[in-house]
């Protein structure tokens, strides 16, 4: 089972909550996904409002509530937002997003590292959203991040795992769980991320703007399971040359 900061998860699919057509659809999609970790942009919710529609669909006894700092332009903003949210009862877990470019929403590596150092000292369980930079992943791990969340492609692009080469290095080197976040556009993208050994994936846009978001959430759940099973089973190596599935020419003719 997946374990992050001493907490175990049966599902390796995490869900984002943006861009849904209603809180009702979001609720059904979460249920269909089987996910146990749900991330919510703090900018979108009012933690002090008991009638907040998004907070009301999240049963915090069933799902781990992972607030995120989407919109923060630098470390100071992210840290301030995190502290105020925790004071309002959002808990210790935090998906750290520092995205100074509103166009690509790509994460700022320098500010993300700074904020991680500060928040870890503050007792937060920090899961930073990063570009697929292996050295940055190591630096964050050393700084005490509970997991790292490299992107498959920029947020909302549905381009899939275009950072596969770097993500493979991150997975190979990391001691903490690696969650591929952002850009996964189809269940096959999620399956690929799981096949190469990602510990989990986080999906939002591909589900929320699908023709049938609930069905798509279920489809991603299946893909994540399939990809994980394939990884555990041990995938055969890819080769450009054909090889017979039952070798005819063994080497048993050689005498010792």
């Amino acid at each position: 089972m997946l374990k992050i900061a001493e907490k175990t998860f049966r599902s390796r699919l995490f869900l984002g909550t943006g861009k849904f057509d209603s809180a009702e659809t979001l609720k059904k999609a979460i249920e269909a996904s089987g996910s146990e970790m749900i991330t919510v942009a703090l900018r979108r919710v009012d933690l002090n409002d008991p009638a907040d529609d998004i907070m009301n669909v999240l049963d915090r006894t069933k799902y781990l509530f992972l607030p995120n700092t989407s919109g923060a332009r630098d470390a100071a903003e992210a840290v301030r937002l995190a502290r105020l949210a925790r004071a309002a009862g959002s808990g210790d877990w935090l998906k750290l997003e520092v995205t100074p470019d509103p166009r690509t929403l790509l994460p700022d590596p320098i500010e993300t590292l700074k904020a991680t150092e500060e928040l870890v000292k503050d007792g937060f369980i920090v899961l930073p959203y990063i570009n697929a930079d292996p050295i940055l992943a190591l630096r964050l791990q050393d700084a005490g991040a509970a997991a790292v969340m490299p992107l498959g492609a920029p947020i909302g692009t549905n381009l899939g795992l275009i950072t596969k080469f770097q993500v493979e290095i991150i997975i190979d080197q990391a001691r903490v769980p690696v969650v591929v976040d952002a850009g996964l556009g189809a269940p096959s993208d999620a399956a690929l991320a799981m096949e190469i050994g990602a510990d989990a994936v986080l999906v939002n846009t591909a589900i929320s703007i699908a023709g049938d978001p609930v069905k798509m959430a279920a489809a991603f759940a299946l893909a994540v399971e399939a990809g994980r099973a394939a990884y555990e089973a041990g995938l055969g190596k890819k080769s450009s040359e054909a090889s017979a599935s039952s070798p005819l020419t063994g080497l048993d003719f050689i005498k010792d």
Partner: peptide, 19 residues
Amino acid sequence: IRQKGFDPVRKDWDAAFQL
């Protein structure tokens, strides 16, 4: 907006971002 299948978003920022 809801009838057209969209979510009317009344809050998409937070004063806490700023000092």
